[in-house]
Amino acid sequence: MRKSNAKIVVKVGTNVLTRSDGSLDVTNISHLVDQLAMLKKEGHQVVLVSSGAVGAGRELLPAADEMDPVVRRQMLSSIGQIRLMELYRQLFAGHQLLCGQVLATKEDFRDRRHYLNMRNCLEALLHDRVIPVVNENDVVSVTELMFTDNDELASLVTAMLNADTLVILSTVDGLLTAAPDDPTATLIPTLSATDESVWSYIAPVKSSFGRGGMATKVRMAQHTARLGAEVILANGKRRDSLVEVLSGKGLCTRIPAQAQPSNLKKWLAQHPTTNGSVQVNEGAKMVLTDGASVSSLLPVGIISVDGDFKKGDLLSIIGPDKESIGIGVAQYSAEKARNLMGQKGQKALVHYDYLMIY
C-alpha cells in the first residue's frame, strides 16, 4: 500500500458476486470480505459499492422475470437487498466488523444539502469499525433517477469522499487491446486520464447480468482520475486481486490521479442538471480551458444566453461549436447576463471558485 490510512472505494460488479447461473457466489463474496477486512485492520478507510441486489432477489424469486421490467427490478431489489446485506453482515461479523447500508439515487447528488448529509454520514461511518456498503436505491430509482450503473455511483462516492483510490472489480484483468476472448488481446497496464485513443479498443458490450460494460468503466475511471483519485481496474474473480493491486502488484489497469480540485468543483463536475446555459466565443473558450491560468467567465466572452436562471443557479458553459466545456454557479440572473453580454469591464457571471471546466 502506497499510503497509510488511505481512503479506498471498492466497486464490485454483479458478475463478480454471482455465478454463471445468476445465483450469489458466496465463496467469492466471502473472499472479497476477507480482503476488505484486511484493509480495514491495516488502518485504511474502506467503502464498498456493491451491485448484486437484483441478482440476489432473482435467486429467491425467479418467477418475477415474467413481470414488467421496471416493476420487476424494483421488486427483486427490495427482496434481494435484504439477502445481500444479511450475507455481508454475517461475513463482516466474522472479522469483528459491522457494515452499514447506504442507499442512494441521483437526486441525492443533485441537491447540495442531500449531498453534504450523505457525505457526513459516510465520513462518520469510516471512523469506526464499520464498512459502509453503498448501492443504488433500485426500489425508487426509475428513469431519470437511475445511475448509468454502479460504476457511476462509485465515481460519485469517490469524489464526494475525496478518496485516494477507486478500485473497480469486474471479471477481466483490466482494459484489454481486444475482446477478452480474442487470443491477441493484451492488458493495458497504465492509462492516462485524458487518453482518447483508448476508445478504439472498447466494444460497447454490456455484462451478462449487470447494466454496465467496459465502456462505462473506462469513461467513469478517467473522469474520476481527472477529479483527483487513482483508479484501478482489476479482476475480482482472481484470488487476492484486491490486496495485490493495492500493494502495487497483480494484473490490472491503472489510471493515475490528476490534480485534485476543490470539493465544490467536484460536486459541480458530477452535477447533471442545470437551469440554463451560456455560449462563449473562441477566445473565451481558450482562456477558460487553459489549465495554466485561473480565469472566471466574464460577459465579454459570452455570445448567447439561454434559459431563465437566477443568481445561485447552475449553468452549462458551451463553446462556439456548442460543445460542453464546463459548469458553474451564476452570480446574477439571465436577464442581467443578456444586458451585459459582450461588454468589457463587467462583473464575472461565474467566478473561478464556482466554475468547473471539464
Rank of each mutant, 00 (worst) to 15 (best):
344 K>W: 02
317 I>K: 03
29 I>R: 05
206 K>D: 00
188 I>D: 05
310 K>N: 05
110 R>W: 14
26 V>M: 07
242 L>Y: 06
74 Q>M: 06
341 M>P: 04
45 Q>Y: 12
46 V>S: 04
158 T>Y: 14
339 N>I: 01
51 S>G: 05
155 S>A: 15
93 A>H: 08
97 L>R: 06
132 P>M: 04
77 S>T: 02
143 T>W: 15
348 A>L: 13
59 E>K: 02
78 S>E: 05
111 D>A: 03
23 S>F: 04
175 L>H: 02
239 R>N: 14
117 N>L: 12
127 H>Y: 05
107 E>P: 03
191 L>P: 05
95 H>E: 13
221 A>F: 09
123 E>D: 05
22 G>W: 03
292 A>F: 07
58 R>D: 15
17 L>N: 05
29 I>G: 01
315 L>I: 06
109 F>M: 15
121 C>M: 10
56 A>D: 04
320 P>F: 09
267 W>V: 00
299 P>L: 05
98 L>H: 11
261 P>Q: 11
289 T>D: 00
166 L>D: 07
139 V>Q: 09
81 Q>N: 15
79 I>P: 06
245 V>H: 06
286 M>S: 13
127 H>A: 08
298 L>C: 14
89 R>M: 08
30 S>I: 08
66 E>H: 10
262 S>I: 11
29 I>H: 03
152 E>G: 02
85 M>E: 09
145 L>S: 04
322 K>G: 00
28 N>I: 15
